[in-house]
Amino acid sequence: MFGQLGYGVVRGCSKALACAVFLCGSAVQAETVHLLALGDSLTQGYGLMDDEGFVPQLREWLADHGHDARVVNGGVSGDTTAGGLSRVEWSLTPEIGGMIVTLGGNDLLRGIDPAASRANLDGILEVAEAHDLEVLLIGMTAPGNYGAAYKKSFDAMYPELAKQYGTLYLDSFFAGLMTDGETPADVKSFMQSDGIHPNAEGVRRIVDAVGPKVEELIARIED
């Protein structure tokens, strides 16, 4: 009888120990990091199949590099910095821990005053700061046809705002396509027929450049 009781006690303890080990192991596992990609058609994946756009390819890249990350597609085709500012607050659901901000391309296409674009980006970063969110700000480069003053003002707002708010910064969404000083004409094979939006291979190259910056963003969130 004592033997049966002793066996039962040992068996019960073993089960309890196994349960404790499982729970402890689960506790140390990293939680899923939730990111919001706030942007325009470049983020949304204009002209591409569902799995070919920036967000799904970034999700896959992060998974392949060992990250448990969920990236919410907050890209709206045609959106300006003003549009991003108008919707950033309600886009930040409680689980979001960081943002990737890629806006300004449509401001350029419309010739919007860089001062207005800067004020909108400033507003977006203020919202992120108020929510205690880490941010990766991805810049744009203005063409020369608006004049030197416009280009200087537009190009400068991204690094200056990144420094002001202490965000991570990447100088261009297209950095992965122009690694050796190529011009847009040189990367035509990676663009859709409109010459503005990347094709699936172009997005893959873009993600290869953006991915390490997003890893830095995740590291900041988890720190």
Score class of each variant (00 low, 15 high):
146 Y>W: 14
73 N>H: 02
50 D>Q: 11
114 P>H: 00
57 Q>D: 14
136 L>W: 07
62 L>P: 08
170 L>Q: 15
196 I>R: 00
73 N>D: 14
158 Y>T: 14
25 G>H: 02
95 E>W: 01
140 M>I: 14
37 A>M: 04
69 A>C: 14
131 H>Q: 13
81 T>Y: 02
45 G>E: 06
38 L>A: 00
22 F>K: 08
162 A>N: 02
149 A>V: 12
191 M>P: 07
217 L>Q: 10
135 V>W: 07
190 F>L: 12
181 G>Y: 10
217 L>D: 10
91 S>W: 02
53 G>H: 09
99 M>Y: 00
207 V>Y: 01
7 Y>S: 12
213 K>F: 12
94 P>G: 10
194 D>M: 00
160 E>N: 04
195 G>C: 06
221 I>F: 04
159 P>Y: 09
118 R>G: 14
120 N>M: 13
15 K>S: 13
93 T>D: 03
60 E>P: 01
99 M>L: 13
190 F>P: 11
192 Q>C: 02
136 L>R: 05
181 G>K: 13
184 P>G: 05
169 Y>W: 04
106 N>A: 01
200 A>P: 11
164 Q>R: 14
45 G>N: 02
108 L>S: 05
221 I>C: 01
21 V>S: 08
50 D>P: 10
181 G>W: 09
93 T>S: 12
152 K>F: 07
210 V>M: 11
188 K>A: 15
115 A>S: 10
46 Y>L: 04
18 A>N: 07
23 L>H: 07
85 L>D: 08
80 T>G: 07
30 A>Q: 14
124 I>C: 07
183 T>W: 04
65 H>T: 15
80 T>R: 11
193 S>R: 12
144 G>I: 13
20 A>W: 06
45 G>H: 00
184 P>L: 05
19 C>E: 05
115 A>K: 10
32 T>H: 03
133 L>N: 02
165 Y>S: 03
13 C>H: 01
201 E>P: 05
217 L>M: 12
112 I>L: 10
210 V>I: 14
30 A>D: 10
176 G>R: 01
146 Y>K: 07
78 G>V: 02
170 L>M: 15
132 D>E: 15
98 G>Q: 08
79 D>I: 00
153 S>E: 15
129 E>V: 05
120 N>T: 11
64 D>R: 04
171 D>I: 06
114 P>A: 01
29 Q>H: 12
19 C>D: 06
51 D>P: 02
64 D>G: 05
186 D>C: 08
143 P>T: 11
17 L>E: 09
189 S>F: 00
184 P>S: 09
108 L>N: 03
39 G>H: 09
179 T>G: 12
76 V>M: 12
20 A>L: 14
109 L>A: 12
128 A>I: 14
87 R>Y: 00
38 L>C: 02
162 A>Q: 03
139 G>Y: 00
120 N>I: 10
217 L>W: 04
113 D>S: 08
129 E>C: 00
77 S>D: 05
158 Y>Q: 07
59 R>F: 08
145 N>D: 15
55 V>N: 13
2 F>H: 06
182 E>H: 02
114 P>Y: 02
201 E>M: 09
215 E>D: 09
115 A>H: 03
32 T>A: 11
50 D>S: 08
